[in-house]
């Protein structure tokens, strides 16, 4: 029972796959940036000395980290509009879910990076008469950021892979368009194989880029 492979269908219709790829890039970059902003915000709340801020932030972060992404996407897409009466298109719903969940992971990376800096650094800076803001900007962050970059890239990579879950709410990313195409052409074998290879190349490229950045940082550290 040999299967008759024929990729010509895929190549004739590759336009729709590229469109999907653009959709993947769009949701990934948008949620990455928004996620970083959310992460900074949540991290500073969580590290606040005011419990009124830090406790809710901690709960939110843990909640977002400990519930599956797909559940969050479905919740934002199907449940949220009923609660607050807005229409969310798949992109907006995905953006909210992704940037909130990545943001909570990013927040932990930020917090971990800052707290990994030894107390002696704070004390050295403080004893010179620096205010908290100056200490953060001049002494703590420059050291912490180097340590944050590898885990940040790791999380970003997860986020990019996770965008395939957008297909479940009919957002036309690469995977969703591939599904649509294969149901039209009845050629799931070629189309899904092609899509897998496409992701493989794309993610390998990104992973390679990230590793290059990491080795650069290692080198810069002497």
């Amino acid at each position: 029972m040999g299967y008759d492979w024929d990729f010509s269908y895929v190549f004739k219709n590759q336009g729709i796959l590229w469109e999907g790829f653009v959709g993947t890039i769009q949701i990934a970059t948008a949620s990455l940036f928004l996620g970083l902003v959310v992460g900074l915000f949540l991290a500073s709340l969580r590290m606040s000395k005011y419990r009124l801020l830090s406790i809710p932030a901690t709960c939110l972060i843990e909640f977002l980290r400990m519930t599956p992404l797909m559940v969050q996407i479905f919740w934002v897409f199907f449940a949220l509009p009923i609660l607050i009466d807005v229409r969310l298109d798949p992109f907006a719903a995905g953006l909210i879910a992704f940037s909130m969940q990545s943001g909570s992971f990013f927040a932990e990376v930020f917090r971990g990076g800052i707290q990994s800096i030894d107390r002696s650094q704070w004390e050295g800076a403080k004893s010179l008469g620096m205010t908290n803001l100056k200490m953060m900007r001049r002494i703590i962050l420059p050291q912490a950021v180097r340590r944050m970059i590898p885990p940040l890239m790791e999380r970003s990579f997860e986020l990019i892979k996770g965008t395939t879950q957008m297909a479940a709410i009919s957002y036309s990313d690469l995977l969703y368009n591939a599904m649509v195409l294969s149901s039209q052409l009845y050629r799931p074998v070629e189309i899904m194989t092609f899509t897998a290879l496409f992701y493989l190349c794309f993610l390998t490229l990104i992973s390679f880029g990230m590793r290059t950045i990491e080795t650069r940082i290692e080198k810069a550290r002497e």
Partner: peptide, 23 residues
């Protein structure tokens, strides 16, 4: 806090572990 920062600026402190800034 601001008064204390100003005060610390006029008092030098040297620590057992140096606390230099490695970067």
């Amino acid at each position: 806090e601001r008064e204390l920062s100003r005060h610390r600026a006029s008092v030098g402190m040297v620590f057992q572990q140096f606390n230099l800034f490695p970067h």
